[in-house]
Write a protein that binds this DNA or RNA. Structure first.
Lengths: 359, 359
DNA sequence: TTGTATGCGTTATCAC
DNA sequence: GTGATAACGCATACAA
């Protein structure tokens, strides 16, 4: 039993009330063609009085555009994504686009069969809703082995509308990618810690099987092997959340002896700092913690987190602009985020071992 | 110069390819009416092969529903809203609805003239897009004096589609409201601090002129006056962000002598704690800080924040369910969030002044 | 300058 | 069982 609220006013009613034809009304609506000021004013008056607004859906049916973009991401509660959404929303709004938000982790569906895969489902929704373009942030595409069914659906969608993916490039995917300088970021933080004199450095957090994690870890290992006696046990992968830093740091220190740790992001870093605090260890005095990915607010933690500004938000702007360019038939730019910056704060301390290396 | 991607496949093409009429195709699409298994299989085969999906926009034009809800909020980056969005998205998805997200603070428009007011504009967008319902979280409606133009637009929108507002009830607004137990929450934290023995209690944060702020402040003052020698100078209102706690705490302590402060939320509390730390004061030893609104992650801060769980996320579920009820012509429930809980952590310390009150 | 007719992709009504 | 056909609200090509 559906209750119908007040009847929607249409262009036809405006036409009747103003004594003009629908085409003339349409003309003043779109400021196209010539309309006598007399009629125009009459029509505008009726529009104002009736509070009429043309239906975008009827309009879309004709124009083939919805002035809507879709954003797909795995987890809105992740701070990494928040800034991105904000930026995407802001830029889209500026271009006159509305946003559809799809949070794939929130769907209760089981990933057992492909049809119920939330990410595939999201792509279907996008297709049905006929959005003009889509921005996909992470998720399945971030895995080392991307599900083939997903990849297929993605490529098919990309044939219909431009799809921009914020992630490291995947070879057999035709979408536009917007990448970050992952290696550079990791290098900045590791070399900072090395330069401070630390030689027993661990790596904490990040989901195994996810490309950003593996890429960061590879860069980390490369550097650490170059300057120290690297040990497998100094690495612990789990996930990206606070609890992973909290639980992980203890395990990691049980595995091996460390005086420095690079966390995958500020959240994991905070979790680790908190656990160390409870264990009676002071950061940075007893052990230093750096992070490879800055999240908001970490400058207010105690201690504040020394980290890498990956300029994540700039990705949002770039992504939307790629989409707009694509709408206009302009060639894609090779898109990469701004160069990362080292943000020195408290959690790694200051120079201390200028003459003697801390083993 | 618009580039058209691969031609969208329509029901007509499916009809041709399968040798059935569009009506029959529509029947198998909607599982309505009788279709011979023979034709059905032929049609399903073509659909599968062509990867066809019916256009929601054409469908909407006819059915008068878009299976879409709109969410309007002032600032996605505010943690208070994040959980809400997540919850709203989750519940909506379960009911088969897609979400449109409008972040009014992100629009660059000036608030000078009503037409360009981002919030009014958002309501217009909602109307144009013909969403089935809308959830509005805070913003203009939270002000003590709601802009009359905005209110008018809101009431008009509410005549067309059900609108649920997550905020304290406003008298001359016809929308459905979902409220929080603001007073109870404030009472819980203030009485906790009073019970611990503190008698010089301040209030920090929150934007003046915003109803939640004023309401919380009123409750705070009522209680504090009842048990202590209240002083006007022990209150400082500014805003809801980290920097407000950071800058505000110093001003507040310059105004008057305090040994306890209630912050409007965990973010402001963290900002204050951080500044105090820099000033060489320890929380909770030298001064205790409580918060009236729990945000994620504050259990990991050092010290962790003693706060109030307002069960904000439950508001999201309630809001969407009100909308769904409304679609089904069911009467509105008087909606209120779950009862708030006191969350005792570290920032207010433990009982200490059992015999002697700390003045 | 303005109005009429047609189409957009889909569903539903109505004959066959 | 199935297939034409009208209708949804709007924009445009074409007439007038």
């Amino acid at each position: 039993m559906l209750i119908t609220k007040k009847h929607d006013i249409t262009i036809k009613e405006i036409s009747k009330l103003s004594g003009a034809s629908t085409s003339t009304v349409s003309r003043v609506l779109n400021e196209s063609g010539y309309v006598s000021t007399e009629k125009r004013q009459a029509i505008e008056k009726v529009i104002r009085e009736t509070n009429y607004r043309p239906s975008m859906i009827a309009r879309s049916l004709h124009s083939k555009q919805t002035k809507t973009l879709a954003v797909v991401l795995p987890d809105v509660s992740n701070p990494y994504f928040i800034g991105l959404i904000e930026e995407i929303e802001h830029v889209s709004e500026g271009y006159g686009y509305t946003l559809i938000l799809i949070n794939t982790m929130s769907t209760g569906a089981d990933k057992m069969n492909a049809v119920d895969d939330p990410e595939v489902k999201a792509l279907h929704t996008i297709q049905e809703k006929h959005v003009d373009g889509a921005v996909i942030i992470g998720g399945e595409i971030d895995h080392v082995n991307v599900d083939s069914q997903y990849l297929k659906t993605l490529n098919e969608l990309n044939k219909q509308i431009p799809v921009v993916i914020i992630a490291q490039k995947v070879e057999n995917c035709d979408c536009i990618f917007v990448q970050r300088h992952i290696n550079t970021g990791m290098r900045l933080i590791v070399q900072h810690i090395l330069s401070l004199g630390y030689r027993k450095i661990g790596f904490l957090g990040g989901k195994p099987g996810v490309r950003v994690t593996e890429q960061r870890l590879a860069e980390f290992e490369k550097l650490v092997k170059m300057y120290t006696d690297y040990d497998d046990k100094s690495v612990l992968l789990n996930d990206y959340y606070l609890k992973d830093g909290y639980q992980g740091i203890e395990k990691l220190l049980n595995q091996t002896d460390l005086n420095a740790v690079v966390a995958i992001n500020d959240r994991v870093a905070l979790g680790a700092v908190r656990r160390l605090h409870e264990m009676g260890m002071n950061v940075p005095k007893d052990i230093v913690i750096g992070s490879a990915d800055q999240f908001p607010d970490s400058d207010y933690y105690i201690p504040s987190i020394t980290t890498i500004n990956q300029h994540n938000n700039s990705l949002g702007k770039i992504a939307v602009e790629q989409l707009i360019r694509s709408f206009n038939g302009q060639p894609f730019l090779t898109a990469e985020s701004e160069f990362p910056d080292l943000v020195i704060r408290e959690s790694c301390g200051e120079k201390k071992y200028s003459n003697v290396l801390k083993k």
